[in-house]
Amino acid sequence: MIKTLRTIVGIGIVSELPPAQDDTLRVREALQQEVLSVLGRALCIRHVDAGSCNACELEIHALNNPIYNIEGLGIRFVASPRHADMLLVTGPVSRHMLTALRRTYDATPDPKLVVAVGDCGCNGGIFGTSYATVGSVSAVLPVDVAVPGCPPSPVRLLQGILTAIRQSVGDRTLKAL
């Protein structure tokens, strides 16, 4: 126990300031105001892997580490789409995930946001459109923000999420500090 406490105290707080939002990532204008008025600052995200190679997932995981500390911004990953305000969707949408992806979207209560993640989520990436893949998230769901990259860095992901909810959390956190 004493080693655990000593480690915690020794390392201290390592969280960095979040990035500013980036409007170039936005692909759709609808909804945000409605979502924001319902949500305030808190946001719950359900991640859906629709055929990703797992690299995007590794970077999404990194958002939860103490350095990016996404929970510190009031944003949480949740276990069920029924608890979610936003879907974070990766992959070129494999045809075998089509139904599961649509059902996950339908199970998410309105109003909801969709962020497509990675080159595959944006345009199918190297897999493109084939007998096995649909080719992009926007071919299946209305996408609000698309974050390219292979895989996108946690900073880009955070920018995408913050852009979707039109929050400059960075500025606010700066003032709060």
């Binding site: 892997d49 055929g51 992959g91 494999s94 075998h96 995930m97 599961a100 084939s130 007998y131 096995a132």
Partner: peptide
């Protein structure tokens, strides 16, 4: 399994 089949070997 097979949900993330992306047609890699054909690609």
């Amino acid at each position: 399994l097979g949900y993330v089949h992306k047609g890699v070997e054909r690609r």
